[in-house]
Each structure stands twice: as C-alpha cells, then as structure tokens.
Amino acid sequence: MAAAAKHLTPLTLELGGKNPCYVDDDCDPQTVANRVVFFRYFNAGQTCVAPDYVLCSRETQERLLPAMQSAITQFYGEDPKASPDLGRIVGEKQFRRLQGLLRCGRVAIGGQSDETERYIAPTVLVDVQETEPVMQEEIFGPILPLVTVRGLDEAVDFITRREKPLALYTFSNNSQVVKRVMAATSSGGFCSNDGFMHLTLETLPFGGVGASGMGSYHGKFSFDTFSHHRACLLRGPGLEKIYAIRYPPYSPSKLRLLLLAMRTRSCSCTLL
C-alpha cells in the first residue's frame, strides 16, 4: 500500500487468514463431505478461498469422518498418491512447513507424505487445539482440521474473535441457521451449502476527491466507496447428483458434459 501510494497506483488488497466452515447438525453428512473434500483438496489445497477448518459438534464430527473418508476414496482411489487428479506441493519450503502441521492434533484420515515427490495425502485432523500452529496460520495445503463446538453460538463466537476471513462457508438444511451465520459474521465472501467460493475478493477502498487519489466520492460514488460489496452464493443442499460432475475421477465424458453446460446460448426473436 505504501509503495503504491507514492505513484497513486490503484490496487486491491485481498484478505488473508483462515477460512472457516461451519457444519450444522441438520445436514446430510455425505453431501457436506463431498463438497468440502472436493474444494479442500483441489490443487492439493493450494487455493486461497479453500475451507481452512471445520467447526461442528462432536456428534456431527463422528458422522462426517466416515463420509469424508468415503469421498476421498471415491475421488482419489484407495491410493491417493497414484491418483492423476491430486496435485503436489509447490515447493520444498512449503512442503516442510506442511509436514510440521501434521504433528498437530491427531490424524484421523491420511497423514502420509513423501518428500521426494512433495506429496502429502488428503489429511483430516481431529482433537486440534486453538493454540496449535495449524490453527494459527493459513494452511494452504491438503490438511483440514476439525474443531468441535457446542453449537451455533459458540461457532459464531469462534469465527468473530479471529481475523476476518477471505471466505466463510456454512452447511445446513435450516435456512435460519444460514441467515444467522451470514448476519453475525463478516468476511470477504460467504457461501452456503457448497465448498467452492467464486467471488471472494474484498476491495478495501481509499477515498479521494473526484478523480484524484485512489477512489472518489460525491453522489453514488460515496455510497460505493464506503460500502462493503459482499459476494454471497446461497445454494441449497440438494441436486448432489448434478453437482457430482465436478468431482474426480475425471474422464472425457465428464469434460464433454461440463463443456456442454458452459456453452453460450443465444436466441433470436421478433418484436411485433
């Protein structure tokens, strides 16, 4: 910011920190597992908007763990290391950092690693303490801690007392729970009942007068400058068979279906 200000260069600052994912008791554990596993381990977890930790009750955790193991096996096979759809860690320094995080809590799923390939298995940690390193920094890798809470109020408190996240996820069949989390928290973007957040960059505006400086105000521009445009993707928990086209293992037939779905459609009409 200081370097850009010398030249009046516009810039966008992206929020960092850890992206929370609250899973309500009222949900289908396999649907949640499919969607969280898909995006947590996409690109070996090296995406800035991936869910960084899961908050849920002890009972929901017990239902989620076998569902997540099932999703990992379905997506990457019995031996994820051999899967062509699972990436590797970008560099040796990042690999060693992630290896250190595997010592936090207790490994419930995965935990294997191979330094020669910079491979870390899709991993789920449980019994994680808030003070441990895995909860103090953005993970940016295929490791997902599960943190138990007693309910929605404790989850909201956990989220709001930490650094504002770039993305925030909530899974629930109860729309009131989704609305409560969305209203009680602040984040760059918010997503319900899915693990894939598309638009989550928060622009931090700096005001100027007219065309000077790094922003402008007067009229509508004042409103825009001092408003937080928050991207919210509100998706229902159904249609899992349709969404499953996104999941690995990938195949030519899935690619054809995706390309067909993304094809631009146009129509012509005559006005009388």
Rank of each mutant, 00 (worst) to 15 (best):
E115N: 05
R63P: 09
T60G: 07
T60S: 11
R97Y: 12
L102H: 02
T60Y: 05
R97P: 06
G105Q: 00
A82C: 10
R63G: 07
G111W: 11
A82T: 13
R106A: 14
G111P: 01
R118A: 08
E117C: 11
R88H: 08
C104M: 07
D114Q: 13
F75D: 03
L64P: 06
G110A: 05
R58L: 13
L101K: 04
K93G: 11
L102S: 02
T116Y: 09
D114R: 15
Q61L: 12
R106N: 12
A108Q: 08
S113L: 14
R88D: 08
Q94E: 15
S57C: 12
R97V: 09
I120P: 03
I109E: 07
E78L: 13
L65F: 02
A108F: 00
M68R: 03
T60N: 06
F95T: 05
Q94Y: 01
P66A: 10
I120C: 01
E117I: 01
A82G: 08
L86S: 04
Q74M: 11
D79A: 10
R96T: 12
A82P: 01
G91I: 03
I109M: 01
L101M: 09
I89F: 00
A67C: 12
S113G: 08
E59V: 13
P80T: 06
P84L: 04
R58D: 14
L101E: 04
G87I: 08
D79K: 12
L65N: 08
L86R: 06
R58V: 14
R58W: 11
R106F: 03
P66F: 09
T116L: 12
